[in-house]
Simulated scan of single mutants.
Amino acid sequence: MTVWDRPEPPPPAPPLDRGRIVAAAVALADEGGLEAVSLRKVAARLDVGPMRLYGFIATKRDLLDLMVDEVHAEILPERPPGDWRETLRVHAERTRQAALRHEWLADLLGGRPTLGPHGLAVTEARLAALDGLADLDTVLCAVATVSAYVTGAIRREVADLRAERATGLSTREWQRASGPHLTRMLATGRFPALSRAVHDGTDTDAGTSFATGLEWVLDAVAARLTRPGV
């Protein structure tokens, strides 16, 4: 066999680092949800063997933690907002925007705190915004209360988006399709409060609903902060 007939060896393996691994995992999750993410699939996306990933990440849980922390970098604004209320409002809105870009985030919000550098920076900014305005337990409860509202609202909105894709019906189309059944049920007179809500309530979009509820929660926090002795 001549030198011209001998195949050349494959090029060196592409360089790998934790940032590239996490970016590939986030891309997979954006495309197909968390079920599309595994160490094997991430390795395939990077065109490397799965065993190469274990030098950087031991388990899928580690990978998910890194993915959540990566998205937390999108939540922290470049410049700190003004007062505590604006800080919590901006963080809430940016969290919602991040979850709409990365719907899988809704499944991982809440629970145990994020310990990555970006997640810790977000928590630090929220606590620092309220520092000195009340005792520490009140501050912790205020931040947790706002976070609980944001998490719940985001999960509901993302669930509605998923239902729309699964059924092929928008919320308004689903309401029209369900209208005859609901009309029959309300006509029984068993649900007077619900009947008033359906017939007289104002239909608002998800963004307006989120912003309105957030302001109510912040009003409650403000009232608590101004209470004597707090």
Rank of each mutant, 00 (worst) to 15 (best):
V42M: 04
V42W: 00
V42P: 00
R45V: 02
L46S: 07
L46I: 04
D47A: 15
V48E: 09
V48W: 12
G49K: 14
P50I: 14
M51G: 13
M51V: 12
L53I: 11
L53A: 00
Y54V: 02
G55F: 10
F56M: 01
F56H: 03
F56I: 00
I57T: 05
A58E: 10
A58D: 14
T59N: 10
K60Q: 05
K60R: 14
K60S: 02
K60N: 04
R61E: 13
R61W: 11
R61C: 11
D62R: 02
D62M: 04
L63E: 03
L63V: 00
L64A: 07
L64F: 09
L64P: 03
D65L: 00
V68I: 04
D69R: 10
E70M: 15
E70Y: 15
H72E: 11
E74K: 00
L76V: 00
P77K: 10
P77R: 10
E78A: 07
E78M: 07
R79S: 02
P80V: 03
D83W: 06
W84T: 01
W84D: 13
E86F: 05
L88M: 05
V90K: 02
H91L: 14
H91A: 15
H91R: 15
A92L: 09
E93V: 02
R94D: 10
T95E: 06
Q97M: 07
Q97N: 13
A98G: 09
A98T: 15
A99W: 00
A99R: 03
L100F: 11
R101N: 15
E103P: 12
E103N: 14
W104L: 13
W104E: 15
W104D: 09
A106R: 00
L109D: 05
G110C: 14
G110Y: 12
G110L: 12
R112S: 13
T114W: 14
G116H: 06
P117A: 12
P117G: 06
H118T: 03
H118M: 13
G119F: 12
L120R: 14
L120V: 15
A121G: 03
A121D: 01
V122F: 01
V122Q: 01
E124Q: 13
E124V: 12
A125Q: 07
R126H: 12
A128K: 06
A129S: 11
A129D: 09
L130Q: 02
D131E: 08
G132V: 13
G132Y: 13
L133W: 05
L133K: 08
A134M: 10
A134S: 09
A134W: 06
A134E: 10
A134R: 08
T138Y: 00
V139E: 12
L140W: 08
C141W: 07
V143M: 00
A144C: 06
A144H: 03
V146H: 09
S147Q: 09
V150T: 02
V150M: 04
V150I: 12
A153C: 10
R155C: 08
R155G: 04
R156D: 08
E157R: 05
L161Y: 09
L161W: 06
R162H: 04
A163E: 06
E164R: 05
E164D: 12
A166S: 09
T167P: 01
T167Y: 03
T167A: 08
G168E: 10
L169I: 02
L169D: 05
T171I: 10
T171Y: 00
W174G: 06
R176H: 14
A177V: 12
S178Y: 13
S178W: 15
G179Y: 05
P180E: 09
P180I: 03
P180M: 06
H181W: 15
L182T: 05
L182K: 04
T183L: 04
